[in-house]
């Protein structure tokens, strides 16, 4: 068993086009470090200055991790982590 991570189109350049990759770790932060080890550069697109970038939404199963514990959110085998581009913008 592992943790499945779903990758959005815009980040598939880091995964050789794969829609999902697998990883391990006990927190979201560890999981991201683990997958970055095999898909170099991916971690940097998700994390900056010790926190999740505002341009991405990351969900553990179906909950936004910002409401759980961010990078400290505990994860375990069998979980699914989904990354989506945040959709936002405006005049300002």
């Amino acid at each position: 068993m592992a943790i499945e991570v779903r990758i959005p189109t815009i980040l598939r350049t880091y995964t050789g086009g794969a829609k999902q990759v697998e990883g391990a770790g006990s927190t979201l932060g560890e999981l991201i470090e683990d997958i970055d080890g095999r898909h170099s550069g991916l971690g940097e697109r998700l994390v900056a200055d010790g926190g999740l970038r505002r341009f991405v939404n990351v969900y553990l199963n179906d909950e936004d991790v910002r409401f759980l514990g961010g990078l400290e959110t505990p994860v375990k085998d069998g979980d699914t982590v989904t990354v989506l581009p945040a959709v936002a913008g405006g005049t300002a």
Binding site: P8, T9, I10, F55, V56, P85, A86, V87, A88, G89, G90, T91, A92
Partner: peptide
């Protein structure tokens, strides 16, 4: 802002 967020190529 629109450009920096645009994440669906």
């Amino acid at each position: 802002t629109d450009i920096s967020y645009a994440g669906e190529p």
